[in-house]
Amino acid sequence: MENSNKLTTKKPFPNFTGHWRPFLLTFVPLVAGTLIYSFEDLPLFQGFIRNYIPDFLWAFSWGSCMLWLWNGCVPTGWWIAVVASFTIFELGQMKGVIQGHGDFRDIIIYGIGLFFAKKAWKINQNQ
């Protein structure tokens, strides 16, 4: 009896049951951001949409992916690693070490993206 219980409750990682929402939260923003970049010449995707929305979606997707992997309990160390990575990335661009142009506003947008990813995860868990 004990053995059969174990068999029914244990779900190995690739089991996709219950993963479709986190999957959508991770990949839909990523695809949407990529589409904005791919069609950046369209008048619709100019200004704020072109400059900040893909960054927001990228951070949102990253945050969702981490929350998905850690089932909502991402160790603080990994959050620090995520924030440090994009901050170093932007600072590197400002200093000319990395291609592109750095912008402090991007860092704030990434932060907002992570914040909303956490909010979305909470809503997802409550449903």
Binding site: T34, C65, F89, I98
Partner: peptide, 18 residues
């Protein structure tokens, strides 16, 4: 987590060079 960090940073650098 490390792999995801690498993938997302790669995506960021690939888009920023645009």
């Amino acid at each position: 987590s490390g792999l995801i960090l690498g993938i997302f940073m790669f995506l960021a650098s690939a888009s920023k060079v645009n």
